[in-house]
Computed example of a mutant assay.
Amino acid sequence: MIRLYISEPTPTFSAGLMLPLNIDQGRYLTSVMRKGTGDKVSVFNGREGEWTAEIAEAGKKQVVLRLLEQTREQPQAQGPVLAVALIKRSPLEYIIEKATELGASRIQLLMTRRTQSDHVKLERLKIIAQEAAEQTERLDVPEILSPVKLEAFLAAPDVEVIVFGDEDSTHEGDERRTMPLLEVLSTLTSKRTAILIGPEGGFDDHERQTLRAMENVHPVNLGPRILRADTAAISALTLYQAALGDWK
């Protein structure tokens, strides 16, 4: 069944509620998917679970849904925060899509000293996250936050623990000074965690020293190979979900 995320403010979902769709979603249902009056779809708004709805009106100017019944309740928000430095457009969009699929609760974009891009189409990234949530049965969409400097993120974190992939720990050899990510995660229980991924080229020496000096920050080793930023983000989220998240 087609799933639609309702981002516009609406009254509390309840049986019988009439729900006008925005122009893009209305056109998608009627012109692209060829749906008409009486056809069923699923809708969610990130707050009140998932509902079955039927198309009550399928006009050229407006498409209206009628909510029928709730099929799934809204789960409690969970999942790690992903804080990721801005990188080139295509791999960044890939990160947003896969982070949504892998259950990130929020994605904070960062500017670091080696950031390769200082501008981003935030609305485009939000649409990518929305479409990924619709396709993967999520009942919420991760918030995509405007870029801030790394220093600002570290000065006012709303998480208990930050883990960051320390590229300089890749070739430490048998006598590792930096613990592997999975080993660190096993010590965190259910603490609110942010996974911090640096830019292409990694964090510079000053940033690494700042991060390593903070009590709530854990540098982690992501293995014997240098990973691209998108690969590192996906790998870290996968390990988190396996160790602490909803894959257990």
Rank of each mutant, 00 (worst) to 15 (best):
L4C: 02
Y5D: 00
E8R: 13
P9L: 02
T12V: 14
F13I: 02
P20H: 07
N22D: 11
D24Q: 15
R27P: 07
Y28H: 12
T30K: 12
S31V: 15
V32R: 03
V32K: 01
K35D: 10
T37A: 13
T37D: 14
G46C: 00
R47Q: 12
G49P: 08
W51H: 05
I55G: 07
I55K: 07
A56I: 01
A56R: 10
A56F: 07
G59T: 01
K61Q: 14
K61D: 15
V64I: 10
L68P: 04
E73M: 13
P75L: 04
A77N: 06
Q78F: 04
A85M: 01
R89P: 04
E93H: 12
Y94H: 14
A99V: 03
T100F: 08
E101S: 00
E101D: 00
R106Q: 11
M111C: 14
T112L: 05
R113T: 08
Q116K: 13
L125T: 05
K126P: 09
A132H: 02
E134W: 06
L139D: 00
P142G: 05
K149H: 15
K149M: 12
E151P: 09
P157M: 03
E160T: 09
F164M: 09
E172W: 07
E175L: 15
L185H: 05
S186R: 13
R192G: 04
F203H: 09
H206C: 08
R208Q: 13
A213D: 13
E215N: 14
N221H: 14
L222C: 10
P224V: 07
R225L: 09
I226H: 06
D230L: 02
A233C: 10
S235Q: 14
T238H: 08
K248S: 11
K248L: 12
